[in-house]
């Protein structure tokens, strides 16, 4: 399944990057991220704990950075993310690409693409839910990041419940509708997150994605 989207945040790319590189900020921005740990130069491990609809869950994930390109105007990182929920007999693997580019003077666009494989029991149930949840997570993440960038909280749209992209500093085009989606082979749009730099910073990407997975798991556990 492919997911892709982009959203802007009210800060210059440099500032956004700086925040990306700050694990504390990221932990605060990523819904449910409780742990982020660097195993070595390229590999990270983390844990997401979340509660959705009164169900608590936790899921471990790992991220392995594949490539980084920082020198161009658009900075980009690719990573492979993996998570597993043993109880649900399911695993997930995401090939992710995240890019950050400037937009005007004081704004940056974060774009993501991900190719997600969801294997096991969840895989036969999840597609519409993932597509939907990915938007939700994106909204939450974008909102938190915007606040971290200094945007006034009360001017931001509510993320939960009926969150429809509004004309506030956080503008969120709907995930690119994929006009050619072929029902036999879901190829649509997608997204991945990413972070743009060698050291601790890329975690954000990993964490956002994995929190998506985690939410999905929680949602299904809740039995909807």
């Amino acid at each position: 399944m492919k997911l892709a989207s982009e959203f802007s945040v009210p800060a210059a790319p440099d500032k956004v990057f700086a925040l990306f590189f700050d694990p504390d900020t990221m932990r605060g921005c990523i819904p449910g991220c409780e742990q982020l740990e660097r195993v070595d130069e390229k590999n990270y491990r983390g844990k997401l704990v979340n509660e959705i609809a009164h169900v608590r869950f936790s899921a471990g994930f790992s991220a392995a950075i594949q490539t980084i390109s920082e020198d161009t105007e658009t900075k980009e990182v690719t990573a492979v993310l993996k998570g597993e929920d043993r109880r649900l007999g399911s695993s997930i693997k995401i090939d992710a690409r995240l890019a950050v580019r400037p937009e005007g003077s004081d704004s940056a666009v974060i774009g993501y693409e991900m190719d997600m494989a969801l294997w096991g029991k969840l895989g036969r149930l999840g597609e519409p839910i993932i597509r939907r949840r990915s938007r939700e997570i994106e909204l939450e993440f974008a909102r938190a990041l915007a606040i971290a960038c200094g945007a006034p909280e009360d001017k931001l749209p509510e993320t939960k419940k009926k969150a429809r992209p509004a004309s506030t500093p956080v503008t969120l085009p709907a995930p690119t509708p994929d006009a050619t989606t072929d029902s036999a082979a879901p190829t649509s749009t997608g997204g991945a997150v990413a972070v743009a730099d060698p050291t601790g910073r890329r975690l954000a990407a990993a964490a956002v994605l994995t929190s998506l997975v985690a939410l999905l798991v929680a949602l299904l556990r809740r039995g909807r």
Partner: peptide, 17 residues
């Protein structure tokens, strides 16, 4: 009638889908 697979995963392998 068809089995839909996405990256090796059968996505409609239940009688709901």
């Amino acid at each position: 009638d068809q089995l839909v697979l996405d990256q090796g995963q059968l996505v409609n392998g239940t009688l709901l889908d």
